[in-house]
Each structure stands twice: as structure tokens, then as C-alpha cells.
Design a binder for these strands. Structure first.
Lengths: 130, 130
DNA sequence: GTAACTACTAACCTTTTGTATAGTGGTTAC
DNA sequence: GTAACCACTATACAAAAGGTTAGTAGTTAC
């Protein structure tokens, strides 16, 4: 048995189908390369367009613009325009984005652990002959 | 303040960059449309290729095959061949896949809540004139 | 004898995603 | 006076992801 019993026990065939459906729903809303990163970037405070682009890194203006519109449409972020010279726009998380706290934390923790693991196995590959 | 303080408080600029990196690492390993679904499908027990394809739904043989190879290469699943007529192959989760329990549970819970929310707002749209 | 099952793979095509470059129109810094 | 910043948008193109169809080689069920 490769997987802990606690993990397997919750999965009758019906629960499995339900779980698959829910995971599918979640991925539909927040899947893709950028949506979660944008939300994480906004956790440390509201940001302007160019600030976001610099902080996230590797995202083009076109894609960032499209993702922000989608996130706004789905109620995860709010767009605020400040009239002035120059006009500035900032993006802030909504309360609904707050429901993602648990997901972001568990995914972040897992990513951290995974990074350690990858680093470790790279060390071992160097030390031991293949 | 749109987001709960508890969520925001952990994010100094450095923590934000680290969190972004970890989320990036996680998405690199288990991002995409299918990887998490395949893992969820295997939680209820080992499955053969065609069983997986039917259970997950909407995935082509080509893509399933490619994803299974990647998941095997990254240590999330194990491929077992049973010689016989016909030869059957089954896939099982490894212990490493077990480290995703928390992620899968929080994502599943969020997806369930999100589905309720979407259903609710669709009801409201029907009831109230636009 | 033909249809369905086993686990895929090859070839080709479409869709999605992303990049690069240039441009808007005005303001500020050197 | 020219370069940089603001927040994008348009256009054109490239790359990645995913879908469709057909086929392998053998076995079982009707």
C-alpha cells in the first residue's frame, strides 16, 4: 500500500467522482499558469499593473491584462482607478479571494517541501555515479 | 480591507517572493489540466489505463498517456505490468503522492464551496431582472 | 465473423497560451 | 529635448497543449 490509509479511506467510488468534480470546478476557476500567482502577489497589498508585472516576473502585459480581467469577472479582484496625472489603476483582492487562504497555504507548503526534495535528489545524483 | 488580516499578515515583501516561488514550484510539478485529476482518480485504488480514462472523462488516450509518463517520471505514480492475456497495466500512487493529501483536500473543499456559490448566483440571476 | 476489450502510439489538426514589438497621450526627471 | 513612467492595446507570430482518427496484435463474447 503506497498511500496512507487516511488518504484512501475517504474514497468510495461516489466520493471519488464527487472529489473529481470539485477539483475540476476549482481548476476551472483558478487553474492555469498565472491566476494563483497574481492572487499571491496581491496578498502583500494592492498593486498597480506594472508593479504586478515586475513582482510576478515572466508575464507579458497582454497576458497579465487578460488574466486580471478574468479574475475581476470571477470576483477575485477589484479594479480601482485613481484619476490624476498620470491616471493610476490598482488591483485589490476581494473577500472571495480570501476563501482561497487554505488552498494557497497548503499549496505553498507543498511547493516548499517539493523544492527541498528536488534539491536533495539533485545533490544525490551528483554524489553517486549513475 | 477586503482580505482577512490573517491572510495578509504573513506577507512581508520577502515572504511574498518566497510564496510566489513555492507556488511556482508546485504549479510546475502538478499544474495543468490533468495531473491532479489523475491523482484523485487513483486515490480510490489502483486503476488500469482505460479505467482511468473512463473515470476522469474528457481526456484523450494521447494526453492521458503523456501525463501518466510525466507523473511516473516525477515519482507520483508507479506503473505495474501484469503479464497475461491480455497484458494489463495498472497505475498506483506512490508515498510521495501522499504528500499531496492536504492540497487535494483543501482544493476539493474550495471547489465544493465554489460550486455552491456559482449555483446560488445563477439562481439569483434567474429570480431578479437584469 | 464481427464487435469489443487490453494499452497504447503515430500522424495530423485545432485551440490555447504566450512572446515580441510598437504605439497611445500625457507627465515627470535630467 | 529626450528618456522614462503610467496602463494598457493591437498586431503578428511562435510554441505548447490538447483533440481526432486510425491502427497495432491478440483474446473473448455473441
Amino acid at each position: 500500500m503506497a498511500v496512507p490509509e487516511s488518504m484512501r479511506a475517504i474514497h468510495t467510488p461516489e466520493q471519488c467522482k464527487a472529489h473529481l468534480m470539485f477539483i475540476g470546478d476549482a481548476l476551472y476557476a483558478i487553474g492555469g499558469k498565472w491566476k494563483l500567482r497574481i492572487i499571491v502577489a496581491l496578498l502583500s497589498g494592492n498593486k498597480r499593473f506594472n508593479e504586478l508585472q515586475r513582482l510576478i516576473g515572466g508575464i507579458s502585459a497582454k497576458v497579465l491584462s487578460a488574466e486580471l480581467k478574468e479574475l475581476e469577472g470571477n470576483g477575485f479582484i477589484r479594479r480601482q482607478v485613481f484619476t490624476g496625472t498620470p491616471v493610476t489603476v490598482d488591483y485589490e483582492l476581494t473577500e472571495y479571494a480570501g476563501t482561497l487562504t487554505e488552498v494557497l497555504e497548503s499549496l505553498g507548503r507543498w511547493g516548499e517541501m517539493h523544492r527541498q526534495n528536488v534539491k536533495q535528489s539533485m545533490k544525490e545524483q551528483k554524489g553517486v555515479a549513475v
